[in-house]
């Protein structure tokens, strides 16, 4: 699936609206192209097979390493012949399977390259590799800003207590501000059913084998949820401390949740995530009497990665420490209302 994470090869992201009960598949144009390529490629592959399994793979390697560097820059003589041979091989061979493509060009090119030293066209792209996701995230951000919506992206390992925290927040804050939830999980609607039962509108995004949410999934979730002006949108990301750090969803802040049943060195093991987060909740503190978890050490570790991170010690189960967290949310919500669009 997830063309951006690559953790599998299929791409089936589904969105379940808990209000309507309808499940739809998210059509992700970008990835369809990838699939087309794959198919084309199968065809090519058989052709290539005929005249050379020996050929294409072996060649790519020689090419990249032995040939290209010396060829382009320093040596003119012996290596060039090598290179030329390779080229010829490659072309004869592409010819066989690729009349439909522009392979005559390929041929011509080899000649240019070796005889005339005509430079290839260099195009400056300066494009961020995550540009597409980033652009969609900016769109989400503007959408939130226009509706004075505070959006928080909750990230953590699996089992840190995100869903329990959300249930509690819906009970405690739901009268103060409308809350809508986007739940991300690889599979099942279990979490969104819990959220729905707690009284908040919710959509479940199932990423299949994907290991994080991306901005297009959020856009689609928002279209289903239609949160009102002044609402808070809580995004429960897929439990994973690696990939979600790289993918902006358009939220105002990422909030990392670290439960005290985990190691206090997690911020050091997953520095990107703790650095990308504006706040850290140390959850399940009601269990501290039974554990060796060193709270101060955990906070020190988080601050060593991100000196400005706000830290809250909470228990979503008992409610301990939640007031300070709620005050932080109120501050963020006020800032969203106050900021010009």
């Amino acid at each position: 699936m997830c063309g951006t994470c690559g953790c599998s090869s299929t791409n089936k992201v589904t969105i379940t609206n808990l209000e309507s009960g309808l499940t739809t598949t998210l059509d992700r144009g970008n990835h369809d192209h990838d699939h087309d390529h794959d198919h084309d490629h199968d065809h090519d592959h058989e052709h290539v097979h005929e005249d050379g399994t020996r050929h294409s793979h072996a060649h790519h390697h020689h090419h990249g390493h032995d040939h290209d560097h010396p060829h382009h820059h320093d040596h003119d003589g012996t290596h060039e012949h090598d290179g030329l041979d390779h080229h010829h091989h490659a072309h004869d061979h592409t010819h066989a399977d690729g009349t439909t493509h522009s392979h005559p060009h390929v041929h011509g090119h080899a000649h240019h390259h070796t005889h005339a030293h005509e430079p290839a066209t260099v195009v400056a792209l300066e494009t961020r590799l995550l540009a597409k996701n980033d652009a969609l995230a900016e769109r989400n951000r503007a959408w939130f800003a226009g509706r004075e919506i505070l959006a928080l992206n909750l990230v953590s390992s699996p089992g840190s207590g995100k869903t329990t925290l959300l249930e509690r927040m819906i009970r405690d804050l739901g009268r103060e501000m409308p809350i809508a939830v986007i739940e991300g999980d690889q599979a099942t609607a279990n979490d969104s059913e819990r959220i729905h039962a707690a009284g908040a509108p919710c959509v479940q995004v199932n990423t299949g084998t994907g290991c994080h949410l991306e901005a297009d999934m959020i856009a689609r979730g928002l279209a289903e949820l239609k949160p009102p002006v002044g609402a808070m949108v809580l995004i429960e990301n897929v439990g994973n401390l690696v990939c979600p750090a790289l993918f902006d969803l358009g939220e105002q802040a990422k909030v990392a949740i670290l439960s005290v049943t985990e190691g206090e060195d997690k911020p050091l093991k997953y520095p990107h995530m703790f650095q990308a987060s504006r706040a850290m909740l140390l959850n399940k503190i009601d269990l501290l009497p039974h554990l060796d978890f060193d709270v101060e050490k955990a906070i020190e570790n988080a601050r060593s990665v991100n000196p400005g991170i706000a830290v809250f010690r909470v228990s979503a189960r008992t409610g301990e420490g939640l007031q300070a967290w709620y005050d932080w949310i109120r501050e963020q919500a006020a800032a969203v209302r106050a900021s010009p669009i």
């Binding site: 063309g3 951006t4 953790c7 192209h33 990939c243």
Partner: peptide, 15 residues
């Protein structure tokens, strides 16, 4: 984990 996807983005953008 995400490098395969990132590499696909390279190919998509360059193509």
């Amino acid at each position: 984990m995400h490098e395969l996807g990132i590499t696909r983005n390279v190919v998509a953008i360059a193509s």
